[in-house]
């Protein structure tokens, strides 16, 4: 995985893509290269696909990465903990949405 040099984010809503090198990504979002790959290994986000030097992500992956950083910084949650929090939050959101539908 470490041969990945580029990240391509696709904004499915607007239909745009944003291309960043791993270094640019680090500068912009303050995510160390090693941390990024660790997050990937923990399954903190799901890539759309991985090619030799490029990883394709959607914006939800960016949101999860940024949330994980904040959870780590503010609450001292480690990576597997942040992945768990994000998965549970997603499930909770789905349940809340379903509940709102049923309560109508």
């Amino acid at each position: 995985m470490r041969e990945i040099k580029r990240i391509i984010f696709s904004d499915v809503v607007v239909g745009e893509t944003i291309q960043l090198t791993i270094t640019e990504f680090h500068d912009k979002y303050d995510v160390e290269e090693a941390l990024f790959f660790e997050m990937l290994e923990y399954g903190l986000f799901e890539p759309r696909k991985i090619e030799t030097e490029t990883i394709y992500l959607d914006l939800d992956a960016l949101r999860r990465i940024q949330s994980a950083l904040r959870l780590q910084r503010d609450l001292g949650v480690n990576l597997p903990g942040a992945a768990l929090v994000l998965d549970l939050m997603k499930e909770l959101d789905e349940l809340r949405r379903e509940l709102a539908t049923l309560q109508k």
Binding site: D11, V12, V13, V14, G15, I18, L59, D60, R63
Partner: peptide
């Protein structure tokens, strides 16, 4: 754009 879903992000 049309067809957006709840929870989607616009950048």
């Amino acid at each position: 754009p049309k067809g957006v879903k709840a929870g989607q992000q616009i950048r």
